[in-house]
Amino acid sequence: MATGYSAISSYSRVQILHLLQTRPARSIAELSEATGLHANTVREHLQRLIESGYVVTETEHRATRGRPRMLYSAASGPDAPRSPVARRKVQDAAARGDLMRKVMPWTETGLPQRAQHQLDALVEDLQDAGFDPVVDEQELTVDLTPCTHAQSQAQHRDVLCGVHVGLMQGVLAEAGGPLEVEGLLPTCDPSQCHVQLTMAP
């Protein structure tokens, strides 16, 4: 899928995700102030992120009178709130992966089924985000080179990489299995991106 169609192809959405990964349960007004974007623009970006399963909402619990605000959080990481969109995406990816391995048994990796389902979900999510991931099931690495995101937004590479790692952690956690993101392998080339996974006991 082309990067232009990705929910995280816009740096403004990446910036919003970064803020929500750093501190969840933020309001539109808070995000607008932090990003400098108009509240309506923030609302549109949030809707796109919700539709992609990256952000979830909750209604503020108020002890005082007044209309409660809608609060937004990133659906990233093992302790993050769950997104029904993300849940459906990982289930669909696992079903497609199982069908592919049934039709093409030579694609079987030998990994535990839950780990394989995690990889199914991770690969599909990365493809939807505009990447062309290459997975090494033996070394448990994911090669995302070349990273078009880092090339187009080189000055924001740290934020981009942090958000992408958080999204990968969220997908693996939603799929439920032994695989976790250990981190990015060091490189001096901004177009190079290799993610190291780890298998929990």
Rank of each mutant, 00 (worst) to 15 (best):
E44N: 13
G66W: 07
G97K: 05
L37I: 10
D79F: 14
S83V: 00
E58V: 04
G4S: 02
R23T: 14
R69E: 04
T64N: 14
R67V: 13
A74T: 02
S76H: 04
R48L: 12
K89A: 10
S9N: 08
P84D: 07
I8S: 10
G4F: 03
E33K: 13
T57V: 10
S9I: 08
L37M: 07
M70Q: 09
D98T: 10
K89W: 06
Y72Q: 11
H45A: 08
S52L: 01
E33C: 14
L99T: 04
R67A: 10
P81R: 14
P84L: 09
A29N: 14
T64G: 12
I28T: 13
A63W: 14
H18Y: 05
A34D: 12
T57M: 11
N40L: 15
T41Y: 03
S9W: 04
R82K: 13
T59K: 13
S9M: 04
P78M: 12
E58N: 03
A80M: 13
S52M: 02
G77P: 06
T35N: 02
I50T: 01
A25R: 10
V85I: 11
R13N: 11
L49C: 01
A95L: 11
L71W: 05
A7R: 02
G66K: 11
I50F: 00
L17F: 04
D92I: 06
T22N: 09
H18M: 07
D79Q: 13
A95D: 04
E44V: 12
E60P: 03
I50S: 01
R48I: 10
Q47F: 05
H38M: 09
R62T: 08
H61C: 14
H38R: 05
R48V: 05
P84E: 14
Y54P: 02
S12K: 15
V14D: 03
D92H: 11
P78S: 15
P81Y: 11
A7L: 05
L99S: 03
H61E: 15
H18I: 06
Q15W: 08
R65D: 12
P24T: 15
A94G: 15
A80K: 09
P68E: 04
E60H: 08
I8R: 07
G77R: 04
R48D: 06
E30R: 15
V90G: 00
A25P: 05
V90Y: 00
T57L: 07
R43C: 06
A25I: 12
H45R: 09
L17S: 01
L46D: 01
R23H: 13
H38I: 10
L71E: 04
E33G: 14
R96I: 10
A29P: 05
A7N: 04
E30C: 13
T64W: 06
L17N: 02
S9R: 07
P84Q: 05
I28V: 12
G97N: 07
A7Q: 03
S12A: 15
T59S: 14
A74M: 01
T22E: 11
A93D: 05
R88T: 02
S83A: 02
G53T: 00
R82V: 12
R67D: 05
L71I: 09
T22D: 09
